[in-house]
């Protein structure tokens, strides 16, 4: 269980985040959703330990980790731009952490991750030879080898398009389920957030606008921001799709993911 209590953060006197209170159960996928500049990445950095909070507590399994340095917290992140090391091939990227800490994952566990993420045929490749989706999977594998207690993903889907996006979504869900791993995802896309996660944390102007299950957010939006900016966007999308797929205009194929 990860609990955040009264978290506050400001830079140079400007408050970025305030009154952040929430709890995340073990194994849950939670999306942090909001427009750019709302403070969602700052919240992610605070959980990771990359930034220091001004006030409040971050409790993991009941212990305040706010003063635990980033590398000792045991959380891990996949950055938006993946931060893969171009001088190393795919396999060496994946096993990078083992050189510092050989016992953290067994050989079998690494092999399982490689297969789970479909990277076996790419192991000898250079990073620059990979597509966006492949890079994302390598970055995921590299982080999973470290057995993070919480997995943080910064905009994991925004650089990907179409079916690749859906397949990565499926992988993220599978990892969270198979490893019973608490996963926190930052995104600006309501569709992504609501279809990927168990709970969605909507942030606006540095504080929580609504926190709940996707169903609750759709059925019981708590304020105008959620209604106008989150739901309205989804409705427009839905209507567009419905117009395309109106009666008698349905495609003759079945949907496939992955």
């Amino acid at each position: 269980m990860l609990e955040i209590k009264n978290l506050k953060k400001s830079y140079d006197g400007v408050t970025i985040l305030h009154d952040i209170n929430l709890a995340i159960d073990d194994g849950e996928i939670v999306s942090i959703l909001g427009p750019s500049g709302c403070g969602k990445t700052t919240l992610l950095n605070l959980v990771l330990g990359l930034a220091d909070a001004d006030e409040g507590e971050i409790l993991f399994q009941g212990e305040n980790v706010l003063n635990v340095p980033m590398e000792q917290r045991g959380f891990n992140i996949v950055f938006q731009d993946y931060a893969l090391f171009p001088n190393l091939n795919v396999y060496k990227n994946i096993t990078y952490g083992l050189r510092n800490n050989p016992s953290i994952s067994t050989r079998q566990e690494v092999e399982d991750l490689i297969d789970l993420l479909g990277l076996r045929e790419h192991l000898d490749k250079k990073i620059e030879q990979l597509s966006g989706g492949q890079k994302q999977r390598v970055a995921l594998a590299r982080t999973m080898v470290m057995k993070p207690k919480i997995l943080l993903l910064d905009e994991p889907l925004s650089a990907l398009d179409g079916v690749i996006k859906e397949s990565i979504k499926a992988k993220i869900k599978q990892i969270a389920r198979d490893y019973h791993l608490t996963t926190i995802i930052v995104t600006h896309d309501p569709e992504e957030a609501l279809t990927l996660s168990d709970k969605v944390l909507i942030i606006q102007n540095g504080t929580i606008s609504q926190y709940g299950k996707p169903d609750d957010i759709i059925q019981k939006p708590e304020n105008d921001f959620v209604k106008e900016f989150i739901l309205n966007q989804l409705l427009i999308k839905k209507n567009n799709i419905f117009t395309l797929f109106r009666q008698g205009n349905e495609p003759k194929i079945a949907a496939q993911v992955g």
């Binding site: 590398e71 992140i77 950055f79 731009d81 931060a83 090391f85 001088n87 952490g97 510092n100 470290m146």
Partner: peptide, 23 residues
């Protein structure tokens, strides 16, 4: 170069010097 390399490598147990040498 990617600005997140040092953070990423530190999360995987590198010291700063190691990241400079290895990456």
């Amino acid at each position: 170069m990617n600005a997140s390399w040092e953070t990423t490598a530190m999360l995987m147990g590198d010291t700063w010097l190691k990241t400079i040498v290895r990456v």
